[in-house]
Design a protein around this nucleic acid. Structure first.
Lengths: 110, 110
DNA sequence: ATCGTTCATCGTGATTTAACGATTAATGTG
DNA sequence: CACATTAATCGTTAAATCACGATGAACGAT
């Protein structure tokens, strides 16, 4: 039938993992949020000094942080009126693992 | 000033890398596109058998493939009237590297 | 030359996202 | 108590995304 196609019948898709990776990637998929992650990788905790580093309105940065938090990539510890943000490295590592499942075939054979 | 904040003055941001990772992640950030990547990880080449695997309209799948192609995650070789799609593992590896730059601090010290 | 297959593209709605200013809630300080 | 600070939330607008059907282009085969 198809000339360059290997057997497709045996493909097992894992819907929950697909959604998981997609959700992580979607949260990472904005330059401002990548910058937030990179800042938080070096420093353990932050207030809204983050606002100054992004050149965006406070409400916008807060929204980006909310997205990262809801995705599980960032942790927030509230100490009114301040909030300390930190990276959740387990989450990044989980993303790396999910990506490794994709290209594992290639990395192993090269 | 801030109680849980390490020095932020020395943070060096790399805008082009931030955009690069964000663009990759944005492309990956949809369950249908994750599934496409996972299918293409095992099989080298495909026609629109992919349509059957996703339960979406042909035009929708074509659109998802375009996004993956433009992000550099997938390669398409046209053999009229068919097109063979394949994963570009270098791209996935590049994403993994960019992620490693983020949590590298943690993985090294744990 | 006509038809069938395969895939990209177009046009269109519905939904989501991004960004902002303004407001509000919650605290510590004068 | 009044006030300043911090960060979340609200309301709004503009833009992007997702999905679809319909159409179009490019070929091979009849």
């Amino acid at each position: 039938m198809t000339d360059c196609l290997q057997s497709l019948a045996d493909f097992q898709f894992n819907e929950s993992e697909e959604k998981e990776l997609a959700a992580y990637a979607k949260a990472i998929g904005h330059p401002a949020r990548v910058r937030l992650l990179r800042i938080l990788a070096g420093r353990v905790c932050l207030g809204s000094d983050l606002v100054g580093q992004l050149g965006l309105a406070q409400s916008t940065v807060s929204e980006h942080l909310r997205i990262l938090r809801e995705a599980g990539l960032v942790h927030a510890e509230v100490k009114h009126p301040k909030t300390c943000f930190s990276l959740r490295p387990e989450a990044i590592q989980r993303v790396q693992q999910l990506l490794a499942d994709i290209d594992g075939v290639f990395t192993r054979s090269s």
